[in-house]
């Protein structure tokens, strides 16, 4: 086992895993803030959502309109707040304080501000809300970070391929006489290459295992943050950073795939070069 190759592979895969995980988690976090295409349109008190729904649907750039009555919104709010006695809460506030809402989905992000203005100008509409500029900038930042991480992972991939190639090449050079004899007695290329390819694959497997372990430790640390007593916003953030079961399966698979791929490419390059000499 060559630790230089394995540790380089582990670091690369760990950083790849972190960037992939970060990208998924930021996406999840942003989704918690709401979709950037949906405009929440709050109606005046006493105005029924269904009365405006058809009119809004006819506006240019509108894809979908969903009505949320104040009763539904009140039920959702009390559930979110963890109130068990809904009627008591209502009586204390002298009835349902909320208004009907229309969730208007725009065709694309550029149309959102214009559509929001049109909606606000309509009779019976009290206020409109949509994903703020900050969230938009956060998304752009996420997009930028994704490119940065892709570049870093790309550079590290080349480094890992170079390290694996050098390592396997040294092993192949040490066994050059054996390789030469194999070639001269009629061994097929696959028979000659296979042991070296297996070695490269093992580097990838061990690297993937190590990086997955490190990622689990990080994940565990985040988990403990969310379970301990923390301000609501931190808990909200940490919940957004949790991976879905599907992602928990995809991440190790991606690490394994990349690790094995790099191991195979590195060892193939090395053994081909030595065998050709």
């Amino acid at each position: 086992m060559n630790w230089a190759a394995v540790s380089t592979m582990t670091v690369l895969l760990f950083l790849f895993g972190v960037s992939l995980q970060a990208s998924w988690q930021t996406e999840g976090l942003l989704n918690q803030f709401g979709s950037q295409l949906v405009i929440s349109t709050y109606l005046d008190s006493g105005v029924d959502a269904s009365s405006l729904s058809a009119q809004v649907r006819r506006l240019p750039g509108v894809v979908e309109v969903e009505s949320v009555t104040k009763e539904q919104a009140w039920a959702q709010l009390t559930e979110d707040l963890g109130l068990s006695d809904v009627s008591n809460a209502s009586s204390e506030l002298r009835g349902n304080p909320l208004v009907d809402e229309l969730k208007v989905k725009a065709r694309d992000a550029q149309q959102v501000p214009q559509l929001a203005m049109t909606l606000k100008a309509m009779n019976g509409v009290n206020d409109v809300l949509y994903v703020s500029e900050v969230i938009q900038q956060l998304r752009e930042l996420n997009e930028g970070l994704r490119w940065v991480s892709l570049t870093v992972v790309g550079l590290l991939t080349m480094t890992a391929v170079a390290v694996v190639t050098t390592t396997i090449r040294l092993i192949a050079i040490a066994r050059r006489q054996e390789i030469e004899v194999m070639q001269l007695v009629g061994a097929t290329r696959s028979w000659i290459y296979l042991p070296f390819l297996l070695q490269g694959t093992i580097f990838g497997l061990v690297g993937a295992g190590g990086s997955w372990g490190l990622l689990l430790v990080v994940q565990q640390g985040l988990q403990s943050l969310s379970t301990s007593q923390q301000p609501a916003f931190i808990t909200f953030l940490v919940n957004g950073l949790q991976l879905s079961p599907q992602q928990l399966f995809l991440l190790p698979m991606a690490l394994l795939g990349l690790g094995i791929g790099i191991g195979l490419i590195g060892s193939l390059l090395a053994v081909k070069k030595v065998a050709a000499q």
């Binding site: 006489q177 054996e178 030469e180 004899v181 070639q183 001269l184 007695v185 009629g186 061994a187 097929t188 290329r189 696959s190």
Partner: peptide
């Protein structure tokens, strides 16, 4: 070349002056 050459080499035995034995 490649595996086709390997297959033909299986039909040829070669003895070298420097033996080429694996130490």
């Amino acid at each position: 070349k490649g595996d086709r050459l390997a297959m033909l080499r299986r039909r040829i035995g070669v003895v070298y002056q420097d033996y080429k034995l694996i130490p």
